[in-house]
Nucleic acid binder design. Structure first.
Length: 228
DNA sequence: AACGCGCCCAACCGCATCCCC
DNA sequence: GGGGGATGCGGTTGGGCGCGT
């Protein structure tokens, strides 16, 4: 397998992104309409992986910011229960337009996991902790339960938990419509526009996000006319 | 007011898979 | 059909920040 040289080996920059880098990246992606990560590093002085991650996790215009809503959180838990122990964050993210796999993964590890444990639910098996996980001989992932342990919780407690989160859920995005330019014929990148949206969010709603999308909070992303 | 601790999240790393030649 | 390059994905890390002592 041809492994892409790591950023160190090719002298590409690492670490936190600067406003200037964000501007360049967004400007490039919007200008070219295609998302060929191979050529992006030449502009952003970052490896393609970093550029892609930065775009999909932070700069994408259709991203939702802030904490997951009660519905989203419950959906994540349900999907995790259905998809099994092997976390398929991208698949979960695909069901949550505007959310990234990284975001969901982080939220799971920091919030939901802890919360489930606190409630006496095994975050891996989605069963009460006092009920030991099924023996290894069994199917590692339990069949999709009709009702998860989370769903079986007392409704009041659930809403209380969700309320605590929702109160703090302050959207960081200021609505602003943008239009991504259509793919240019001059582009030699064979990546289809569909790949613009991360596979994690390849749902139709997400795909339409570029047409009338929201921009992330950083105001320096606005007014990128002079880029490039 | 200063310090320490814990939490959160952006970003990196490395493997897996896809795709093109 | 095989090899190599590009991309996707999940796990992990580390810096920043807020809170408690």
């Amino acid at each position: 397998m041809g492994r892409q040289p790591c950023c160190d080996k090719v002298g590409l920059k690492k670490g936190p992104w600067t406003a200037e880098e964000d501007q360049k990246l967004v400007g490039f992606l919007l200008t070219h309409g295609h998302y060929c990560w191979r050529v992006v590093p030449k502009l952003a002085v970052r490896c393609g992986k970093s550029c892609r991650l930065r775009w999909t996790n932070y700069l994408r215009p259709d991203l939702k910011r802030g904490l997951l809503s009660d519905e989203e959180q419950q959906l994540v838990i349900d999907l995790h229960a259905q998809l099994g122990n092997r976390c398929v964050w991208s698949k979960i993210a695909a069901q949550l337009p505007g959310r990234t796999d990284n975001e969901i993964k982080n939220h799971w590890n920091t919030h939901i996991k802890k919360k489930l444990r606190k409630m006496g639910i095994d975050p891996v098996t989605h069963r009460p902790l006092d009920q030991e996980a099924p023996p290894p001989a069994q199917q590692p992932t339990p069949p999709p339960p009709t009702t998860t342990a989370w769903q079986q919780l007392d409704g009041a407690e659930r809403s209380q938990q969700a309320e605590d989160e929702d109160v703090k859920a302050v959207p960081l995005i200021q609505p602003q419509e943008i239009r991504a330019p259509p793919p240019t014929a001059s582009s030699n990148c064979s990546v289809s526009p569909a790949s613009v949206i991360s596979p994690a969010c390849s749902s139709s709603s997400a795909a339409s996000g570029l047409e009338a999308a929201e921009w992330p909070e950083p105001m320096y992303l606005l007014g990128m006319d002079g880029i490039m």
